[in-house]
């Protein structure tokens, strides 16, 4: 039982590390630190860096949470049975 709980927690932490890295790269990376470089790229009618800062990062945040919901529901099922 104890090992099982440990494994569950470890998997959860792995998910967190991956998802939070994406969270950081998209907002702080693309939206702030690399914004000038990305702004050289045209993305439809937007400069890409500006688009990430005012649109793209927010869409990514929503998607990240729903991926986490999906992963954790699956993990919960796996460990309950």
């Amino acid at each position: 039982m104890k090992d099982k709980n440990k494994l569950y927690w470890k998997k959860n932490l792995n998910y967190l590390i991956v998802l939070l890295s994406i969270w950081f790269i998209v907002s702080f990376g693309f939206g702030i630190l690399l914004v000038n470089q990305l702004n050289l790229i045209e993305f439809f009618g937007f400069k890409l860096g500006f688009w990430f800062a005012q649109q793209g990062s927010i869409y990514t945040f929503v998607i990240l949470i729903f991926i986490y919901i999906y992963l954790m529901n699956k993990l919960d099922k796996e460990f309950k049975s």
């Binding site: 998802l19 939070l20 907002s27 500006f50 945040f61 986490y68």
Partner: peptide
Amino acid sequence: YDGSVYLMGWTGGYVLLAL
């Protein structure tokens, strides 16, 4: 562009909340 601090700042926190 400077207004992005509010857009990202007031939405990105929900990722931290959920995770």
